[in-house]
Simulated assay, not measured.
Amino acid sequence: MSRPRRLAPVALLLVSALTLVGCGSDEEPAAGPSSEAAAEAEAGQSPPEPDTDAPVEDDTSLVDLLRSAGVDDDLVNRLGEVGDANGYGLGEGVETSLEERQGLAAIQIDTCRDVAVGHRTWEGIQASDVSSGGTEEQAAAMADFLRKEFCPDVAPYKEAPLPKQTLDGPEEDAREGRGLGSPISWWDSRYRRVSWSKECAAQTGQPIGDPVAYRLSDDAVVCATVPPAEQLKEHLISVDVVFAEPAGEKRALEAALSLLPLDAVAEDETEGTNPDWSYLEGGCLNVNIQSQRLKDVVDGLKKDAEPWAHAVYYSDGATSDGAVGPYTGKIKQVSLSTGRNDPTDSGDLTC
């Protein structure tokens, strides 16, 4: 499973931002009649008409995100003007609305914070924007505005206080899971929470959602984001293991297996490279891991559960544009997710 590419100067950038911020997951069930209304309909009674005069609550999550980052409407509009002039909105020279500009600002807040913690560089961001269809002049104009005027006003990510924990919990959760697919409550009973900002930020970048981090061992931490979908909420189905120093493949597999049910077995390995659109010359190693118990653990959380997980090894790390460097056999980061990861029809596996 390749990492999602960061959307750049195309109309999809705004669509993505407005979808990600303040909207429900597409995995959440569609709204429908309540059980009481359904029962009345089945009994031949008509459910009561909805109150059309009831006030509709506005979704303020996008504005709240901007305000918490110290970004006001004036800065949003100045960013939007640069975006409109350089194709980062609805097309070059097409004026965007305030809401659309707020979506662009939310995306660029992540960019600022990724650069601030060392996860990405301005050179790389410009190259990524050019690879996505922008010209060098457009990418340079946006990067210049971000670096000089927008990012200096963006507040650092503020992490919530770490909770108090009671450790020495059971090795397995109630479904016989051991990490991947397990609820946050199990993680909190088993592993000590650590500061995400300190341990994970530079390696995994700005989170989209609520981040958590756990001390897995003396040499490794687990970095993750709590899934927003209702049926996945509070269960971690995708995590990154970050080593203090690059580790060997045996240690990386040991760490991955420690977060899977006891029947987990590594089945096959495939080397991968970054996709053609990536400006990075990078590589990775994918390891598919079979576990029938994992299917049982994940089955109640999402559709199409499989008796598989996959671990992707990175020697330096990974951004939304792919692996940062070539795969050397030494691993700094392991991305562990549910499901099997196979090459495309062309035989290529992307990092």
Results as ranks from 00 to 15, higher is better:
V265E: 14
L66F: 15
G32Q: 07
G70N: 12
D51Q: 08
P170D: 05
E249F: 00
W196F: 13
T273Q: 09
A30S: 03
W196C: 10
E176L: 15
A309E: 01
D173Y: 10
L260C: 09
D84V: 02
A43E: 00
V242R: 01
G44R: 00
V21F: 12
Q231P: 10
S182C: 13
S128E: 15
G133Q: 07
L90R: 15
P152W: 09
P183C: 02
H119V: 05
V130G: 05
A143Y: 11
V324D: 01
W196G: 12
E254T: 15
G283E: 00
L180S: 01
V226R: 09
A309S: 01
C351T: 06
I107Y: 10
K158G: 06
P47I: 04
N86Y: 08
V312Q: 03
G181N: 12
D345P: 14
A244S: 12
T52F: 11
G44I: 00
E36A: 06
K198G: 06
L62C: 12
Q102Y: 02
S25K: 03
Q203W: 05
K233R: 13
A264G: 11
G24Y: 03
A323G: 02
D316K: 00
Q231I: 11
R78P: 03
K250H: 02
L216V: 08
S16V: 10
A11I: 13
V94Q: 07
S320V: 01
A127Q: 04
S61F: 10
V130P: 15
Y327L: 00
K198S: 11
E100L: 09
R175D: 11
Q126M: 12
G32S: 09
D219G: 07
A105I: 01
P29K: 02
R178K: 14
N341T: 02
P33A: 01
V226N: 13
E171C: 02
A127G: 12
S131Y: 15
L18F: 13
A141I: 12
R215T: 10
E123K: 15
M1F: 04
A106D: 12
L232N: 04
A11M: 09
I125W: 14
L294W: 06
E27D: 09
D268A: 11
D321W: 01
R293M: 13
S132A: 05
D58S: 11
A105C: 01
L20I: 04
P163Y: 08
R6K: 14
I208M: 14
A105L: 01
V222G: 01
V221N: 04
E136W: 06
A252Q: 06
G32R: 03
G177N: 05
K302C: 12
K158N: 14
T273N: 13
A69D: 04
V298Q: 07
S132Y: 02
D74R: 00
G103N: 01
S346V: 05
Q45T: 00
K198L: 14
G209D: 03
V194T: 14
G89A: 09
D218L: 08
I107L: 14
N341E: 03
G91D: 09
P55S: 05
G93P: 13
Q231G: 08
P275R: 14
E171D: 09
V82P: 00
E27M: 07
A143Q: 05
A39Y: 11
D73L: 04
D72C: 04
P152T: 05
H119C: 12
L167K: 03
V312P: 00
A264D: 10
L280W: 03
